[in-house]
């Protein structure tokens, strides 16, 4: 048994021109969340409790695209979704289409623990939230000024803002600029592009868990479901590993990306980092995505084919890293 390990992410695909102070803000939040997870792991909280707690923290902070700060659907409201999975017993819970639940990941946990089902969505999920007495807030609570501005621009340009389609640095910079003409406050809109969050943990008993939460795509069609709530796509955990993905939802769904990492470990005998590299390289086709993973041995790994990914990880032997770029 290799001890505990934890990784968090705040989405894949970062504008290379992201101003330094925003980079610092993101790193600070990731560090705070890591430290929260680490302290809970040290006090022997189980992996499933730790991933929920860390993702709650990320949802509550408006910086990333989940909970408060969620991207806005075409009609200007938020439609949040999340999922959580306990590798121990492969129990899971998921929610979609939430607009008043303060912490979607905790409702996903309640679906897992307190309902006969694994996945509840839209008004049925909101009804369940009220029955369970979880904290509810007005839809306005989730909506930030920046996201209102972004939606307006996205609508004017009649486009869905994909956070992972951010032009790579150096490669045809001119055309990249021409491709993303949307500007807000004098900066390309991609600087503000909101990102999904997730956390994976293995505790010192070797139990793995994963959780992912998102507001989805800016200007998405109402009713759109992405990869984040889908077990095997955005989130997966079993007795071998825990995985949380972020990026182009449609590519992650058709690649069953999170399960794929576990499947090549289970059926092909690959190690964790090998499995992550294989999946990012071979399973995304033309899609863009990133993922974080831990194994039951206490290894931690991440991989992405986007420009940058907000991420952090730590292990029991004292290793800790928070990074945005490669």
């Amino acid at each position: 048994m290799g001890g505990w390990a934890i990784a968090v992410h705040g989405g894949a695909g970062v504008d290379p021109n992201l101003p330094p102070h925003r980079q610092e803000e993101a790193k600070k939040l990731l560090t705070r969340c890591l430290n929260l997870g680490i302290s809970k792991l040290r006090s022997n909280l189980s992996a499933i409790d730790v991933v929920e707690l860390v993702v709650r923290e990320l949802e509550t902070d408006p910086l990333f695209n989940s909970g408060r700060g969620s991207a806005l659907a075409a009609n200007g409201t938020v439609e949040m979704e999340a999922s959580i999975m306990d590798g121990n017993g492969r129990r899971c819970g998921a929610v979609s289409g939430l607009n008043t639940v303060k912490n979607p990941v905790s409702l996903a946990r309640l679906v897992m623990d307190k309902s006969p089902h694994s996945y509840l969505a839209f008004s049925g999920a909101e009804d369940f939230a009220r029955q369970q007495g979880v904290e509810l807030v007005e839809n306005e609570y989730f909506i930030t000024e920046e996201n209102v501005g972004m939606l307006k621009l996205a609508k004017e340009a009649n486009t869905i803002v994909f956070d992972y389609r951010i032009p790579a640095v150096g490669s045809e910079t001119c055309s990249a600029v021409a491709e993303s003409p949307l500007q807000m406050n004098g900066l390309p809109i991609s600087v503000y592009a909101p990102e999904t969050v997730g956390c994976v943990v293995v505790d010192n008993q070797g139990r793995c868990a994963a959780a992912t939460s998102t507001g989805g795509l800016m200007n998405k069609m109402n009713g759109r479901i992405g990869d984040s709530p889908l077990i095997g796509a955005g989130t997966y955990a079993c007795n071998l590993c825990g995985v949380s993905c972020t990026g182009e939802g449609e590519a992650i769904i058709r690649g069953t990306l999170a399960r794929e990492v576990a499947a090549v470990m289970e059926y092909k005998g690959l190690g964790l980092q090998e499995a992550v590299d294989f999946v990012i390289k071979e399973r995304l086709d033309e899609g863009f995505a990133g993922l974080i993973a831990v194994s039951n041995k206490g290894d931690v790994a991440c991989g992405f084919n986007t420009t940058g990914m907000f991420r952090g990880c730590a292990t029991e032997d004292g290793f800790m890293e928070v990074n945005i770029w490669e």
Binding site: A94, S96, S115, P116, H117, Y119, L120, A121, F122, S123, G124, A125, D127, F128, L230, I231, G232, A233, I253, R254, T256, R259
Partner: peptide, 18 residues
């Protein structure tokens, strides 16, 4: 007798269909 809003495996790629 499912709860309103319940989603099963059928629409989930990799679960009910692949």
């Amino acid at each position: 007798n499912k709860m309103v809003g319940r989603i099963g495996d059928t629409p989930i790629i990799g679960a009910g269909t692949y």
